[in-house]
Amino acid sequence: MAGELPDYGKPDRLYDIGDLLQGYDPGDELAFVKSWDFGAYRRYISDGTAAPRTLEIRLAQAEHDARIAEALKTFLTRPTEPTLVGVMGGHSLSRRHSAYRAVAELGRYLTQRGYLLVTGGGPGAMEATHVGATFAYADDAAFAQALVTLGEEPSLPKGLGDILTKTGDLAPGYEEAAKGAGRWLNKGLEVRDRAPKHRGESLAIPTWFYGSEPSTPFAGAYAKYFQNSIREEALIAQSRAGIVYAQGGGGALREVFQDVELNFYATTVDDFIPMIFFDPDGFWQREAEFDVSGVTRPGIDVRNVLERIFRYGRKDTTQILQRVKFTTKFDEIAALIETRVHKAQHELAAMLNFSA
């Protein structure tokens, strides 16, 4: 299944799920590897991934990503600036996990209160956020049924990371991984199609750096980048009213400390973007446990290190640490975000006007 790979394109707006899944047939077991989205990923791999093989390739990727950045600015330009709240978390979180349900419930709650949620657009905790936003105005029974139905295909198959060779060709034995990804994606599309017409809006900022995993089908718009470094900067920079951290791994940790760097240099307390560590299991407040087989109880205790970092060189540590919260209480989360709404909208308006 070689096929002609798409070029990098010159988008003039953000993608929607129909754009990404162009060529995808839910009735085809191997549909996952036949979509435009996956074709773009193959192009990215064949051209050298994050280290493009030629200047021509580098320039084509750069133009695409610059156009997406411009489209994102256009998307955010409205009569009243939206209040963006980021939700970061692991891609491997099962749709059956209690933490997935909790993130979906929080996403629904925050969307109902007028916040525009932004994630990395992948599976796991990221998808849960968009599910909550999609069903923000559905009744409780429809939302609960959506989570049950999604649980019928709880996780992506193992082996997706090895589905392509380094040249962008389909690897031997790719079929099983592709079929599993298709089943996972089909279940999401089924639930999305059953959602009420009045759906909450949400924004995904994914990347082809992780293109072996399908983007969640629940976001309203997708600012998809080739260069992951630009995408990561966009994620943190756009989440101006606060960032919620669900349980995660290396990617979530990178985002935590990108946020730490930004907040470390906050001139005033009002400039500090709230950091909210959200997980019913207490993932961010305990150390992982291990035995000879590996991790038996996941966890990454970040409390002490964050306190030490923010105490270093600051005189307003007590006030700053009030904006670093470990909680699962929705009203506490909303109250903390509310302290930053006016400032976040002002900053976004200034950024949009400056770059107009």
Rank of each mutant, 00 (worst) to 15 (best):
D139G: 14
S155M: 14
L170W: 05
V131T: 10
A144M: 07
G132C: 00
I163E: 02
E153M: 14
Y137K: 08
L150Y: 11
E175G: 02
A146V: 02
V148Q: 13
E127Y: 12
E127I: 00
L160R: 02
L150S: 06
G173Y: 12
G151P: 01
D140Q: 13
A142S: 14
P172G: 04
Y174K: 04
K158R: 13
D140P: 00
T134R: 13
A133L: 05
T134P: 00
L147T: 06
G173T: 09
G161D: 13
K166C: 14
D162H: 10
Y137D: 04
A171F: 11
P157R: 05
V148M: 08
L156W: 13
T165P: 01
T149C: 04
Y137A: 01
L156T: 04
A128L: 11
G161A: 09
E153D: 04
F135Y: 15
P154V: 11
L147H: 09
P157V: 04
G132R: 00
G159F: 10
T167F: 01
L150H: 10
P157T: 07
E153C: 13
T129K: 08
F143I: 01
L170C: 06
T129A: 14
T149A: 11
H130P: 01
T149N: 12
L160F: 11
T134V: 05
A141Y: 01
A144L: 05
A133S: 15
G151Y: 13
E152Q: 10
D162C: 03
A144W: 14
G151N: 01
E152A: 02
G151E: 05
G151M: 08
G132P: 00
G173S: 04
K166N: 15
A171G: 09
L150N: 11
Y137Q: 06
Y137F: 13
L160E: 03
T165E: 12
A171Q: 09
A146S: 05
Y174P: 07
A142Q: 15
K166W: 13
A141G: 08
A146L: 01
E175H: 01
L164D: 04
G168K: 06
T167S: 15
A138T: 02
V148G: 03
F135N: 08
T165F: 00
G161E: 14
V131E: 08
L150A: 08
A171L: 07
D169M: 02
V148S: 12
E127W: 12
L164Q: 09
V131P: 02
P154D: 12
F143K: 02
T149P: 02
L147W: 11
S155V: 08
A142H: 10
A138M: 10
K166V: 15
L160N: 09
T149G: 02
G132Q: 03
L147M: 07
H130Q: 03
I163W: 01
P172N: 07
F135G: 05
I163S: 07
D139P: 01
A141R: 00
L150T: 11
A144D: 15
G173P: 08
A144S: 14
D162T: 07
L150I: 10
